[in-house]
């Protein structure tokens, strides 16, 4: 159990740092989507499936779609 949780937290940290480092904003959005997805799996393993469902549907799907639309409206690459 502790191994699964620590692996998920490590993967979340890697995805969050990748979202900071990327110059391509679309890749950064996908990396932050990965953070939300791993957080929802973490919530599921911590026995909160209700929060996991809300996190997966909002954080991973809806926010990503809104960010993709925002990137399509503005510039794709960070200066």
């Amino acid at each position: 159990m502790i191994i699964i949780v620590s692996l998920l937290v490590l993967a979340m940290l890697v995805a969050a740092v990748a979202a900071l480092i990327y110059r391509d904003l679309l890749s950064a959005v996908i990396a932050s989507c990965l953070v939300s997805l791993l957080a929802s799996i973490l919530f599921f393993f911590l026995q909160a499936p209700d929060v996991a469902m809300a996190e997966a549907s909002i954080g991973a799907a809806l926010v990503t779609a809104i960010f993709v639309i925002a990137i399509r409206r503005t510039k794709r690459y960070e200066e």
Binding site: D50, A52, M53, S57, A65
Partner: peptide
């Protein structure tokens, strides 16, 4: 079961958003 009006509503909205995209 886990879920409810808000989570299910967001999933239904995501279906229409996917169709729009």
């Amino acid at each position: 079961t886990p879920g409810g009006g808000f989570a299910g509503g967001v999933i239904i909205a995501c279906a229409f958003i996917l169709a729009m995209l």
